[in-house]
Write a protein that binds this DNA or RNA. Structure first.
Lengths: 338, 338
DNA sequence: CTGAAAGCGCTTACAG
DNA sequence: CTGAAAGCGCTTACAG
């Protein structure tokens, strides 16, 4: 089943079929319809390999460079990324690195494989050093799920501030007024924004934030254990704990369980990110869902566009794409006790 | 940089270069060396797209059909699978499904995309129904990380019995004699094998298994909570708990934490699989690591071989590939208390 | 707006 | 064992 079979079936030239399937312009409506009908009838599918040989510019090679911490995102990124990549006839590569030395090696491997662009999930998305290393080799870079996009680097993300604000409003709507917060690692970009979103939500409801109800965490489970213990040692016990990621929310859940505090009857706990652990623990954690698959799709689309523009001599401006998040209401949250 | 550049550099014909890079026979040692040297000097890389156009048989399309529970494996599978896939110039697709209806739709989408073969991670790898559905459409199937391979379906896996045996021996070597076990979901294939491996390890050391130290779980965190609570209510407390997966080990850890039992000082806890949760919780869980990336690589290689054999009119026998596991000693295990 | 020709980089026959 | 020719299925110029 080739382009020529479709052309014969539709009674047009092969070039017209090529134009239609590529979505190129310069095709009359009548021709387009005939071709599209034939494509449907014959169940034609482009041969991406053949396409790639001829149109060098289409065969963009895109790498995803990740380090351990973001592994939980990875499969979801791949779901969207692979789909988009096969649609664009681009090639997707996965490369893992750890530490700075490992990073340099990984960049070398990617270059040897001929990458044109690299997508960086967290936390590498916020490493100026990594970005510069890649750019020095002429590689196009895109930051995925970063909280603070750099003005000169294309990004795909959700709004962390708005996410935290939405969660805080949700808790307040459930009747909670005594809300504690577990902050994330000060080194990571989402930390500040999520905390500010929380403060904004409290403030707009006229609620105060007690200093002993704010605990410092590091986004790890272990830090969540310590933070939760600290919160429970406060003079008054909050009716809800908003942890700024799911790992720490899961830890808070474990601590509550150990203290025989029933969740959500006596205490509401919620997180952020909707990673695997949120649905692993029990009760499952109410959290802010990042549309990671969608973000992977968008990332591949944007970076391939940018690569193509660059190959044809252009100097495309960075694109910043903001996607909507979703508040996932699960069993770890409930109305405030009377 | 093409095959012709290499040929010119080496002073041979392009066909000779093609033979060398493909690893085909019929090349004299002298020629081979000259070509290999030039490849190295010029840093030549095959253009997989071009290769794929000519050798039709290479352009195998492989789908990975997964359902939610195995999502934690997915990124690791992709790491190995993508690498192998790009080496073989095959195409990898990802498709998710939930429930039986979703499964039928997913199979339809995969067929529409023209898959030749489908890799099934757990738990779909053990669904005769799914396998038959795919086979009815002429699709080659491979079961990944199944515990009980079906005689007529190719598989890539580790030995669950040996894994559980190794962990049990490890605990015994640490001085533990009072070892409790949390079983998995009776519906899943690894459950029985892991339990048998545990029994074999205990038996060969002349240790008895107390009935009240064996708890039934379902592989979920929640079931692990209940199972651990039950174990702690036994008349005597074990010095080690071997949970048959990491989710349940994490739950046991949470229960121990709640009861102020120090891990690993007063209690050793270990799991199986080495999924993300094993390194999320604290202390990190000692567990049996499945080499998932390697398994992804092997799965793609085997299924592409099988697809090619079938395309050329052959009727290849199913292949069963067993990979070695690794015991990951982390902080949740330690010597038995005196 | 449409199509016949040339060529992408490789491999499959075919001939020596 | 070695290589010149033809062709994979598509797209990029080029001509109408």
């Amino acid at each position: 089943m080739t382009i020529h079979d479709v052309a014969r079936h539709a009674g047009v030239g092969s070039m017209t079929v090529s134009r239609v399937i590529r979505g190129a312009g310069n095709v009359s409506a009548g021709m387009r319809e005939k071709v599209e009908a034939s494509v449907r009838v014959l169940n034609y599918q482009v041969n991406v390999a053949a396409r790639a040989t001829r149109s060098r510019s289409s065969a963009a090679r895109v790498g995803i460079l990740y380090s351990n911490p973001s592994a939980s995102y990875l499969s979801e990124i791949m779901v969207g990324g692979l789909e988009q990549s096969s649609r664009l006839a681009s090639h997707l590569m996965l490369e893992r690195c750890e530490g700075l030395a490992g990073q340099k090696q990984a960049v070398k491997r990617l270059l040897a494989a001929g990458v044109d662009g690299v997508i960086l999930p967290p936390p590498l998305c916020d490493s100026r050093q990594t970005i510069n290393m890649l750019r020095a080799e002429g590689v196009t870079v895109l930051a995925l799920a970063t909280a603070r996009p750099m003005i000169d680097v294309s990004s795909v993300r959700i709004d962390d501030f708005e996410g935290a604000l939405a969660m805080t409003r949700h808790l307040i709507a459930l009747g909670h007024r005594d809300i504690a917060f577990i902050k994330g690692d000060p080194q990571h970009t989402p930390t500040e924004l999520r905390y500010e979103g929380f403060l904004a939500g409290m403030s707009e409801a006229g609620l105060t934030v007690r200093p002993d109800w704010v605990a410092q965490g590091l986004f790890t489970y272990r830090s969540g254990l310590a933070a939760a213990e600290k919160l429970f040692e406060a003079r008054l016990r909050p009716s809800a704990i908003f942890a700024s990621n799911d790992d720490m929310a899961a830890a808070a859940l474990a601590v509550a369980h150990g203290r025989q505090i029933a969740v959500p009857r006596d205490l509401t706990i919620c997180g952020f990110d909707d990673t695997a652990v949120a649905t692993t623990v029990w009760p499952e954690v109410t959290t802010i869902h990042q549309p990671i698959a969608e973000m992977g799709r968008a990332a591949v689309r944007l970076i391939v566009d940018e690569i193509r523009a660059r190959k044809t001599g252009g100097d495309p401006a960075p694109v910043h794409h903001l996607l909507p998040f979703t508040l996932m209401e699960r069993d770890s949250s409930g109305p405030a006790p009377p």
